[in-house]
């Protein structure tokens, strides 16, 4: 059966291998340049004692390259569309599943081998792209501490493997249930994008209870160590937390990254907003207002990677189970 899977898909495997190789060459060349650029910048800033400001002065990589690397966020979806969707649906459409099923092989074995290789390939390609991106980004991570941020979190580490497995499983399941390739592709793109957004935006920040740190408006907001993820921030007044007015359309101002709803601040301070942020801060502090930030510490990065990967792997497993039931129980 593996022989058949290979014979059926070897061309697209070659194509995907070529694309991966091209990407790898690009990443390896520019990554080495970037790493040496970063190290020489470190050496020179150490000599002039300006390393504290390095993140503001040094720009690593070119915008085009950064964009290309950011775009690898769609790789799992592409794998789902091109490998997952057609895997079973195409066989149903052309009737070749009936050819295979009339050989001396059970449907469950046929499916197991096909799905097994597809998932393995998805994990391999998703993992390879992620490994390249992670390596390429290591100077940027060290410099900007952004790898916990949405966007960067999604293309580095092990989560892309989970996404790739899920996307391919989703494509396979949609193709099996719909029995047509094109609708399966549409469903794959739609459901994958929706779930990634929902989980990334609404669920991820709750994997572990975020750390909340209050601060006084007399100083700048605290900056936790390393690549932390700032989840939210706000203001606590004498009567408790102040609602974020800009959530319902009111004007807001950023105090070192923390949103301050102007409408809900004491009127005495409001006039100071546009004169001097420093005076505005002192005024707020004087009226008993304090700021707070809520964040996920950098130390939790791998825990979050693990949890998110686990969620998508479990979803993938559920989809494969549905596929297996549909293929073995339903009439061919």
């Amino acid at each position: 059966m593996t022989w058949l899977v290979w014979r059926q898909h070897r061309n697209q495997t070659y194509l995907a291998a070529a694309a991966l190789a091209a990407f790898a060459v690009l990443v390896l060349i520019t990554g080495r340049q970037m790493a040496s650029q970063y190290h020489s910048a470190l050496t020179s800033c150490a000599a002039s004692h300006t390393c504290g400001n390095l993140a503001n002065t040094l720009i690593l990589g070119t915008p085009v390259l950064s964009l290309l690397v950011t775009l690898t966020v769609v790789v799992p979806c592409l794998l789902g569309v091109f490998w997952g969707g057609p895997l079973v649906a195409r066989e149903f459409e052309t009737g070749t599943s009936q050819f295979a099923w009339m050989q001396s092989i059970t449907r469950s074995r046929w499916l197991a081998v096909k799905v097994g290789w597809a998932l393995l390939a998805a994990a391999a390609w998703g993992g390879a792209v992620s490994a390249l991106v992670t390596w390429w980004s290591s100077p940027v991570n060290a410099l900007n501490h952004q790898n916990f941020q949405p966007g960067q979190f999604d293309i580095q580490g092990i989560v892309p493997v989970g996404y790739a497995l899920f996307a391919v499983a989703l494509g396979i399941a949609a193709g099996t249930l719909l029995r047509r390739t094109l609708p399966a592709l549409a469903v794959t793109i739609g459901v994958f994008t929706f779930l990634r957004l929902v989980i990334g935006q609404d669920l991820r920040s709750h994997y572990l209870t975020a750390v909340t740190t209050p601060f006084s408006f007399l100083h700048a907001p605290p900056s936790p160590k390393g690549s932390y993820w700032l989840v939210s921030g706000g203001v606590v007044g004498p009567a408790g937390q102040v609602a974020n007015s800009h959530a319902h359309g009111g004007p807001g101002v950023s105090f070192g990254g923390v949103p301050v709803p102007i409408d809900n601040m004491p009127s005495a301070c409001r006039v100071l907003v546009f004169q001097s942020p420093l005076k505005f801060g002192s005024c707020l502090a004087a009226h008993g207002y304090r700021g707070f930030i809520t964040y996920q510490p950098a130390s939790r990065y791998w825990a979050f990677q693990g949890i998110e990967t686990g969620i998508f792997v479990l979803l993938a497993a559920a989809l494969i189970a549905v596929t297996a039931i549909a293929v073995t129980r339903r009439d061919a």
């Binding site: 059966m1 014979r7 009936q98």
Partner: peptide, 29 residues
């Protein structure tokens, strides 16, 4: 399944594989 042969009306074969490839498929399955 080894005892049964069935050819559906649409004569399903892998259009992009050759007859020789199909012989290989059968030999493996």
């Amino acid at each position: 399944l080894a005892e049964i042969g069935f050819v559906a009306q649409e004569i399903p074969l892998y259009r992009r594989l050759s007859a020789e490839d199909h012989i290989g498929v059968g030999a493996h399955l």
